[in-house]
Design a protein around this nucleic acid. Sequence first.
DNA 1: CAGTATGTACAGAATATACTGCACGGACGG
DNA 2: CCGTCCGTGCAGTATATTCTGTACATACTG
Lengths: 186, 186
Amino acid sequence: MSDTTKTSLTPVAQKFILHWGEMGTKWGINRTVAQVHALLFLSPHPVPADEISSTLSVARSNVSTSLRELQGWGIVRLVHVLGDRRDHFETTKDVWEIFQTVSEERKRREIDPTLRVLAECVQELKAGAQGETYTRERLESMLDFLTIMTGLFEEILRMPVGALKGVGKLRGKVITLLGSEKKKAG
Amino acid sequence: MSDTTKTSLTPVAQKFILHWGEMGTKWGINRTVAQVHALLFLSPHPVPADEISSTLSVARSNVSTSLRELQGWGIVRLVHVLGDRRDHFETTKDVWEIFQTVSEERKRREIDPTLRVLAECVQELKAGAQGETYTRERLESMLDFLTIMTGLFEEILRMPVGALKGVGKLRGKVITLLGSEKKKAG
DNA sequence: CAGTATGTACAGAATATACTGCACGGACGG
DNA sequence: CCGTCCGTGCAGTATATTCTGTACATACTG
């Protein structure tokens, strides 16, 4: 069943996929990787790699690499389809879930190491009792900020899928609450 | 007064600046740009371009470009120092403010255009009453998500400088509140 | 077991990005 | 007015990243 369905994209799908690719590059994600993700996101069925390859006009091996990358990020899974030997791929369809997954992974890969480096820097400055007071102040404020911010962010991420709509409705109120609580506390 | 002070970096400063550079690249920001920013962030005084150049060992013109870029992001300002013809540069020192500024700019440059594209796509799908129901569902859910999310984020950003500490304290409570409100509403 | 389908690793080519060095222009200093 | 300082634009170079094509491994098919 090498029915390599030559899937061609509708104009809208194409528009979205291309834009998603650009978007990706601006956030440090490989264009092809982002495009593959967009394609899977729009596809109602799992898609085999060679079909992705022909649809996007990129080398088969490139698709392979991109899929591996996306699996690494935890938003693409390999699945099988009855009567087809080939691996098929699908992505998480729930947008909030995608966001959660990617954010957590990015935190793990990029923020956590930064926190570690900052902590080390501060530590080293505490040890060598030099006149680097200013540097230390700056680094500490940065460390504090990132710590609080990621903590907050993590809690938001931990909210159940779909809670977002609730947040949407509550919005204005909640933030105002935060603001006023702050005033009281300050 | 071409007192081009050959400033050399302390080990800690160097460590931070290098890491910040790497960090930058992972988020789609030029390494040198990030390094220049880190340098300014740690510096107690405004710094002239040639000093940045020699301290980081990058070409003068490269520094010039990077500074322009940082000014474009709104986190670096040109200032003058008495008795010195040269332009000096300083960055915002408040980390929360840096975060606010950069986030807003990134939203403006990257998220907003995406929202626009998504809206267009959805619109086009509504017009041409095709069988692209699935595509439309996906794109709509993405559009909804991004709309809500950026709205929420914007409100958070609008919180006064320093409110963050308050939020830090309130944290657990607030998020729990959000969660339970959701349950009630659902 | 031969033959074919499928997936992946990797070397080299192609491209994009970043950086340097210099040249030019304006402004200042005497 | 020179001579110098300073900033910026740009052409060419260097580097990093991405992509392709092929070669190889594995596993299924008959």
